[in-house]
């Protein structure tokens, strides 16, 4: 089992940012997702975020919306997501789940955290849960050695950066743009500022995601952040060329994250 701290530390020792890749469980199928993730890891992804498909993904752009909808239509269940985490963890990569809050609450907060831990998962990203609403989640993740990743945004005030940084373990997820997931042609300079501001409140690594799709963007972000998160671009690659295209994209992004 590789922890988040170990993954960042390894990347750091190699003078680069960590590469973090996202794919929803069950897409294009339960076993197909595992194959694609294996290819992403072969291509150089350090940390995997497995998306837990949800009916109302209001932080996601059209690429991820369509993928999770397909996954739900395929019948993907939370048990499949945890089983996917177990398989991915065996690849030797730090394995996280990204989930909207309601499925975790409904499944059982403690049950979810403990089953994920048993499966070898090391963290969970919760895009619609803020620290203010996370009392039960803090207890369950602490008890089960699961890192809880909260997000900071370009619009976060200093007070909120402090709140989020204090509640987060593993790494801080900084949104690169104001908006939902999905490839963008350009990222503003604002994300560099929010990363700099966030560092005043935490020693944890900070990874940047939302809108990041190209090796050039990855390279730019790697100069000031500890990790680069790519999601929709992997789905687009898989849609056009399956696991091979995912591996190839990972290789290019991995070449991009050097400092």
């Amino acid at each position: 089992m590789t922890t988040i701290a170990q993954a960042f530390s390894k990347a750091h020792s190699e003078h680069r940012a960590a590469l973090i890749g996202y794919l929803p469980a069950g897409y294009p199928s339960v076993s197909g997702a595992v194959d694609c993730i294996a290819a992403m890891v072969e291509g150089g992804v350090d940390i995997i975020e497995i998306g837990l498909p949800y009916s109302d993904p209001l932080m996601d752009g059209i690429t991820i919306q369509e993928a999770v909808q397909q996954s739900l239509e395929n019948g993907t269940k939370i048990a499949d997501v945890i089983a996917t985490a177990a398989k991915v963890s065996e690849l030797g990569v730090a394995t996280l789940i990204m989930s909207y809050w309601n499925p975790i609450e409904r499944y059982g907060v403690e049950k979810f955290a403990s089953e994920l831990h048993k499966a070898g998962g090391v963290g969970v990203i919760t895009p619609d849960l803020t620290p203010e609403e996370a009392h039960a989640w803090v207890e369950a993740t602490d008890a089960n050695e699961i890192d809880r990743v909260f997000l900071v945004a370009l619009s976060s005030t200093d007070e909120r950066l402090a709140t989020v940084a204090a509640a987060t373990t593993g790494f801080v997820y900084a949104g690169a743009v104001m908006g939902v997931t999905g490839a963008r042609t350009s990222l503003g300079d604002a994300v560099r500022q929010v990363v700099t501001r966030t560092r005043e409140y935490t020693e944890l690594p900070i990874a940047v995601g939302l809108g990041v799709s190209t090796p050039e963007q990855a390279h730019e972000i790697a100069q000031f952040a500890d990790g680069v998160i790519v999601g929709s671009a992997f789905i687009n690659a898989i849609n056009s060329g399956g696991p091979d295209a995912a591996r190839e994209l990972a290789q290019k992004l991995r070449a991009g994250v050097v400092r």
């Binding site: 209001l58 932080m59 809050w101 895009p127 619609d128 849960l129 803020t130 203010e132 609403e133 909260f150 997000l151 900071v152 945004a153 370009l154 619009s155 976060s156 005030t157 909120r160 989020v164 949104g175 104001m178 908006g179």
Partner: peptide
């Protein structure tokens, strides 16, 4: 003060919206 009616209500939103809600 954080918008709860007993155990209900609150804010379950992306961090990007927190400043706007404040």
């Amino acid at each position: 003060t954080s918008g709860h009616f007993g155990p209900f209500g609150g804010r379950f939103v992306p961090e990007a919206l927190m400043a706007a809600l404040d």
